[in-house]
Amino acid sequence: MTADLVRVPVFDGHNDILSRLMREGVEGAEQRFLQGQNNVHIDIPRAREGGLAGGLCAIYVPSPAGGLDANGDLPRVELHSAIDQTISQAALLGRIEAQSEGAFTICRTAADIRKAMEKGSFAAVFHIEGIEAAGPDLDIVHVLHAAGLRTLGPVWSRPNIFAHGVPFRFGHDPDIGPGLTDAGRDLIRLCNRLKIMVDLSHMNDAGFRDIAKISDAPLVASHSNAFAVCPHSRNATDWQLSAIRDTDGLIGLNFGVKFLHPEGKADPNMDISVMVRHIDYLVEHVGIDHVALGSDFDGTLISQKIGDATGLPRLLTALRDAGYDEESLVKIAHGNWIALLERTWGA
């Protein structure tokens, strides 16, 4: 790898900093993020050092205690608990913006993202990963959309009233469990009407296929990798990649080592070349205009060769050394995400 690191602004498709901050205590969480703290992947100082210009900030409700159910699935989240935790994390997102003195901007349009990046403000998009806070009436989706929600994943990797999230299984494809419920179909149609991007990263194969039939929007897997390189149930099969390509969609590279390593190893010293191998495969199958980054920062184990947001230039340098030109690097780093969101949300 060359000594000169590539410095291109990155807009990233997935981080879990909100739920991580909440786990560590809501008191002072805003300033911990804005001023910096130990043992996180993202905060404002790290973002500035690594060129992380923004991304999809996920609201995630942890699974209740108790282990797997009789079907081997993680237990469902109770509605009222999910509502409470969703509102708390959404409020934290808003307080970070309010206390940031312009360093952090919640973006509702692609134009907002561009403006925030131009002025050096972290361009945050309000995302929900598994919308357990919604009942079958979907009323809260309207409320959250009015509050800035612009992307959501119907499920995390557990069942809910909308679908059956794909469980974490290495050596097994995502063809596990049933597809969308009637409520799930209603949710996808509502997202299309409201121009909310639907994230397929935690969908099983049946749910993915149902959404492909129903949705009139580009298909997106915000933080998934190539199943052909790492046969993990969370990764995208060749059929799913073709569906993403054919709908002018996008897939974002997940930095989690267990979704990257060809043998499924949680190797904290995994080489960046494995990430490049996934990018190469994705580009080959969906095209350079449909591949981006979806780090899963603060939500999974990431190789020490990247470490945290400050390591992003090392990945871009590895891609350049592998033959990607400057135009391609800009597309992967941020251009493809902004273009995809513009296609989904409208001008």
Rank of each mutant, 00 (worst) to 15 (best):
L282D: 02
T317L: 02
V283E: 13
G171V: 09
F255D: 07
N192G: 14
G287C: 04
G54D: 01
H261I: 06
H142S: 08
G130A: 08
L74G: 05
H172K: 13
K115Q: 14
I17Q: 11
L194C: 06
F162W: 04
F255S: 08
E118M: 13
R169C: 14
F259A: 14
L152T: 05
A266G: 10
N254P: 01
G94F: 13
P45T: 12
K213V: 06
R76F: 01
K119S: 14
A90S: 15
H164Y: 12
E118F: 06
K331I: 04
M275V: 12
S328M: 14
E327Y: 04
A183S: 14
V77G: 03
E118V: 06
G28W: 04
G67R: 00
T237L: 01
R76I: 10
M270Q: 15
H164F: 07
H145Q: 06
E129V: 11
N160F: 01
D271V: 11
W337G: 00
A221S: 11
Q240A: 09
L315A: 07
G51D: 11
L68P: 00
W239E: 15
A292I: 10
I272W: 02
R277T: 15
Y324D: 04
D16L: 10
L301T: 15
A91R: 13
S224F: 03
E101Y: 06
A3H: 07
Q304E: 15
Q85I: 06
D112Q: 12
L18K: 00
M1S: 13
E342M: 11
D210V: 07
T317M: 02
N204R: 06
K115V: 04
P64G: 12
A90G: 15
G264W: 08
D325G: 13
V8H: 02
G252V: 06
P136Q: 03
A322R: 15
A133K: 01
D16H: 07
A333H: 00
L149R: 01
A147N: 11
L5T: 12
I83Y: 00
P136C: 00
R95D: 13
S303P: 02
A133V: 07
A123V: 06
D216N: 15
G25N: 11
V166L: 02
G50M: 03
K115C: 10
E27R: 15
R23Q: 14
D325V: 09
D175C: 01
D199T: 02
L241P: 03
Q85D: 13
A146R: 15
F227T: 09
V125S: 03
E78N: 08
K115F: 03
L194P: 03
F104G: 02
R320W: 08
I214M: 10
R234Y: 07
G264D: 04
